[in-house]
Design a protein around this nucleic acid. Sequence first.
DNA 1: GTCTATATAGCGATAGAC
DNA 2: GTCTATCGCTATATAGAC
Lengths: 224, 224
Amino acid sequence: MYHVHQLEPVHVLMPNDLTAPVGPGRPKDLAKRQAILEAAKQLFLTLGYASTSMDAVATAAGVSKLTVYSHFTDKETLFTAAISATCTAQLPELIFELPDGAPLEQVLLNIGCGFQALISSEQSVQLTRLIMTLGTQDPKLSQIFFEAGPLRVLREMEALLRRVDQRGLLRIEHPDKAAEHFFCLLKGAPNYRLLLGYAPALDAEAAQAHVEEVVGMFLSAYRP
Amino acid sequence: MYHVHQLEPVHVLMPNDLTAPVGPGRPKDLAKRQAILEAAKQLFLTLGYASTSMDAVATAAGVSKLTVYSHFTDKETLFTAAISATCTAQLPELIFELPDGAPLEQVLLNIGCGFQALISSEQSVQLTRLIMTLGTQDPKLSQIFFEAGPLRVLREMEALLRRVDQRGLLRIEHPDKAAEHFFCLLKGAPNYRLLLGYAPALDAEAAQAHVEEVVGMFLSAYRP
DNA sequence: GTCTATATAGCGATAGAC
DNA sequence: GTCTATCGCTATATAGAC
């Protein structure tokens, strides 16, 4: 069990989000702020940090460069805001419910397929790559990303596996570790190759087979 | 000893390696070439492609910038040479033997510990991050990296697991998939967090526990 | 607050001397 | 072959008009 909850991660970033028309004078144009943020999200994700110029962001957003600087102090601030917004928007809509009648295998297959689709998406891949390269330079980014995405999924799965254990469906001693194993297997070699750029994403058929195989192995390993 | 002979990826890169004092006129200074390559390897790995300037490489290598250009045509060529050299130097010294008397669990633990140490090394992490960011722009890099490192390890493990199955120690229907699962579990959440920059590498004790847990789960899943 | 035009700096690549 | 000095380009950030 690990926590990296130091330093109130959320409050630090709020001023750069869409919620704050603060400060003296006329309130700024929120629509333009939104447009800038959208453009920044797309460009940073596709081109990376260094290759994305403030000019390009301004042009894509349909505003002038100075307007960008007016809303966001500098390039780094804009980048952090864009990444943060992308992370919080990455709401994984996975179902972690365990109905009384539903067979466990089917529940795991559903979760597996949804997760597989999520991590195979272009946006997810790009975001992961970006965090991996820049997380070292700015640990706050890693924290924001991990706690907004992977950590929440892990926690929900952990809770589900605990219920599974309590009902005696499987024998799971450490639900946190088991949850990690499950998603780790789902990512697996295909996702590794995808992130590396060595192979494209699995097609629908292969993805389905992969999920079934992983669920099978997971059940084998934790069968009572 | 391994080879990466598909699509002659090697010959393309040889002129940039240390082996070629070719061409007319006085042979170039190989010591300087080596120094440049060493400096490039270190700087590219730590700073990334964009943030590493040719000036910095020249300074670090103790030569002038034009000497760098003399040995390597341009920045991209130098980068490819540096990454390629790093990949081939990443010799994983893992033992994939299966002595008659040795208990299977011990063999897997040995492989697991070696692999765990390899992927936790600073150089390995940096190299992986770099390939993930630039592999999309230059698929050759991904190919060089993957076939020089991960693929070779996978193949050896696959062969070992096939022997394990033949001896009846485990029931492994698809050794290739099983090998992927094994290393995937070994990497696991800790390595994912390490790559993201969210958490430091496991200490010796935790790493050992992690490997033992993974080996245990692997044996549970494939026990006949 | 927003725009056009510009100052300033850093980097990749090259010309010419030794 | 190697070095010093420089060109050309791009991008961040800012000054002044509306």
